[in-house]
Nucleic acid binder design. Structure first.
Lengths: 217, 217
DNA sequence: TAATTTTTTTAGATTAGTCTAAATTTTTTA
DNA sequence: TAAAAAATTTAGACTAATCTAAAAAAATTA
């Protein structure tokens, strides 16, 4: 049984490890967890003793198999609760993360399996992120960014790579929701903004900053 | 913002205060919270400084108005989550308490108000206990025990005064559920067990021990 | 590659919540 | 009502998680 704090470190290490082979640095962890590097060093020692991370002083950390399994179980709980909040309680996709940060630590396997069933075994959370299974396995999808799609191509919006309420609210105002069809009309030479046709219905200009954070397939 | 521990103390003081004017003793709290009296003394000092309890050394404690309000808000959350677990996730009434002990500490007012709406503003939890409102007010119902009902009277089962899984499972096996009609046929001179007619359909012998913990109106 | 800067770790404290053992107060009993 | 017993509090210590300041290691730069 691990503490909330330990679970949060594992989760943070998992996220910071995505898309890199190198270990996660102490400072990166301190930034992400809003603590000081000294505190992180202490915690890393403890997590290493428990066999959850591979850690050599000054060398950064990676998760062990068991550490990754636990991180993914926390992420599973987080994402299932997000689905519950959005679909059953009508929370906006910009609101669910903060509440799920607390719910993800509730310790009952039966609860989470029953919640999964109640929600109809969803495969994705409200942001389009995949939900790990009960064994702590998660499919890895490779999506492209809207900013990388060539003119004339039609794609479907499948996720976001930025989860801040501000960004998500911006998408709400623009009417960009998961599953909408996007035809890339033109990419501006001037500011790289993208003109897209949404669901064959209306045209919208999307800034490069936004396009970089929209995942499509 | 109060800690889980502080919230648990407030809740425990509330429950131990029911049906008595006197303050709750340090030892009673130590028993209920599975800690030592010395630890309780320490915590009482802190809660008193925060204005949540009335405390004089060696004299026991009572909740202040604010302390009681907070206790009732925790109880509100606990009971609403119990309803969710029983009605939406199909947990038995003997299973919901333990999980709700964790869920009751999730800190989001919006969450609990939306949960309340999702559940259809229930007035009672799965054990028949009333759910406090958002202001921290709870109606007090005065129910009688089945063991106090005179022969020939017909009553309705409205609650239980014992919440252990063992007791609740015993009621399940006997087919005694909230809302069932009970006609007291006869009370045994020998062991005070009660012969009841349930829903005008079948007769059951209920031990005095069980009858004492069945609340009826 | 030597000096400087950055990153990381260690040393030593702090806080909340707990503990045991000892001291103190209250209650019970003879 | 004095002695004994029970209840409660204080004293001092421990753990997890954090902090600041200082030391040490690694990376960068001149």
């Amino acid at each position: 049984m691990y503490s909330f704090t330990e679970e949060n470190y594992l989760k943070t290490i998992f996220y910071l490890s995505i898309g890199t082979q190198e270990g996660v640095s102490t400072n990166a962890l301190a930034d992400s967890t809003n603590t000081r590097a000294a505190s992180v060093s202490d915690m890393l020692k403890r997590l290493a003793e428990k066999g959850l991370i591979n850690y050599q002083k000054y060398r950064g950390v990676t998760l062990t198999e068991e550490g990754e399994r636990l991180a993914l179980l926390v992420i599973r709980k987080h994402r299932l609760w997000e689905v519950f909040l959005a679909e059953k309680l009508q929370f906006g996709w910009d609101e669910v993360h903060v509440i799920a940060e607390e719910l993800e630590h509730i310790r009952s396997e039966r609860l989470i399996e029953k919640l999964d069933a109640f929600l109809g075994y969803p495969k994705f959370d409200p942001h389009g992120d995949p939900i790990p299974n009960a064994a702590g396995e998660m499919p890895r999808f490779i999506y492209r960014k809207l900013s990388e799609i060539v003119e004339g191509t039609t794609v479907v919006m499948t996720g976001v790579s930025e989860h801040s309420p501000a960004f998500l609210q911006h998408l709400d105002k623009a009417g960009l929701t998961l599953g909408c069809q996007l035809k890339v009309n033109e990419i501006s030479d001037f500011d790289k903004s993208v003109s897209v046709l949404i669901d064959n219905a209306r045209t919208l200009f999307v800034s490069h900053e936004v396009a970089k954070n929209l995942l499509v397939k």
